[in-house]
């Protein structure tokens, strides 16, 4: 890490409470890699936390440098403390660009940082372009009038942008690269804006949007979700359900996939005994591989499947469990 990074491109990688990075952090890291190459500048990814174990993950996405800001007061997102810590590093290194994900925490941080740095912030962009020497154009759609505004920050640096989650693809992992610098920011209690009084998770913690493998059961299961749960467990996945299956009380409502349920993007989804009404299939549109089992060869679900099995689902589930050594 050079002391000054004049003209450099920085990306803020946001960590969640479980220490993992938000997908949008990695999405903008992929886009930033491409932009840094075009600009012939170095790419630095900044991460903040109470421990320094995050760098290894980030090095897989091609940064030139990883800058870890580590301090016990940075254990959880705190807009005030995080902004103070990052602003200090920006003042030292003078990057030209700083990209953040437009998550709730990212928006909280970006606004505070932009004020502290006395610079401009383009919020919630859906695409990014380069113009001139190092001018970023952030495109922001507006509802009224159907306009799409191209916003630049022509004078001040760094130019700051928050990017809407899901607009850039997740980059592929590569061999670890880039050096790692760990900095302990100068922080005291007065820099912290929020204190945790108590922590009570809201309702259930099931989040099918983040599951890589989902086994979905529908009307055709007849409510026999026991073996389906075992199969989900064996594959390290989650159980999902159609509206019919949740209405019948076979599965909790928070596992319902589709138009009035959850929109998922698993790498693999097994769809068992589901006819495939569009109100369901919109919930698996972004899935990687779709495997469908249904007795009816005319079932519309087969139009969405990469692999389709016409027949009863029980023998399929049993053979899979046997193959996985769980039967």
């Amino acid at each position: 890490m050079v002391a000054t990074d004049e003209g450099g491109l920085w990306v803020y990688a946001e960590r969640r409470n479980d220490g993992s990075f938000t997908p949008v952090s990695l999405e903008i890291l992929g886009k930033a890699r491409e932009l840094a190459r075009k600009l012939s500048v170095e790419l630095t990814v900044v991460t903040v936390g109470a421990d320094g174990h995050a760098a290894a993950e980030l090095r897989k996405y091609g940064p030139d440098h990883v800058l870890e800001l580590v301090h016990p007061l940075l254990a959880r997102h705190d807009g005030k403390a995080y902004a103070t810590a990052i602003a200090a590093e920006v003042h030292k290194a003078h990057p030209s660009t700083l990209l953040l994900g437009a998550t709730r925490n990212g928006q909280d941080l970006a606004g505070r940082l932009a004020v502290q740095l006395r610079t401009g912030l383009t919020a919630h962009v859906t695409s990014l372009e380069l113009e001139g020497k190092d001018q970023l154009v952030g495109w922001v759609p507006g509802f009224g009038g159907g306009i799409e505004a191209g916003i630049t920050c022509p004078v001040k640096r760094p130019q700051m942008v928050t990017v809407r989650p899901g607009v850039f693809p997740l980059p592929a992992e590569g061999p670890p690269v880039g050096d790692v610098t760990t900095v302990t920011p100068h922080l005291s209690e007065k820099d912290v804006g929020m204190h945790r009084v108590s922590f009570e998770p809201k309702g259930s913690s099931i989040d099918l949007t983040r599951a890589d493998v989902i086994i979905v059961g529908g009307r055709g299961t007849g409510g026999n979700f026991g073996r389906i749960e075992e199969l989900a467990h064996a594959l390290g996945g989650e159980v999902g359900a159609t509206r019919v299956a949740t209405d019948a009380g076979w599965v909790d409502r928070d596992r319902m996939i589709g138009q009035t349920g959850v929109i998922t993007r698993p790498k693999l989804v097994l769809v068992l005994g589901v006819s495939g009404a569009v109100q369901f299939t919109v919930g698996i549109e972004g899935a990687g591989t779709v495997v469908a089992v249904n007795r009816d060869p005319q079932a519309p679900i087969f139009d969405h499947a990469d692999l389709g099995i016409v027949g009863d689902l029980a023998p399929v589930v049993e053979s899979l469990l046997r193959a996985l050594g769980e039967a």
Partner: peptide
């Protein structure tokens, strides 16, 4: 929940299914 997604789909894809 879900309504912002609906409107984004209508805005960018011109339909209510995000297809």
């Amino acid at each position: 929940k879900g309504l912002p997604t609906l409107l984004w789909g209508m805005y960018s894809d011109g339909n209510t299914f995000r297809l």
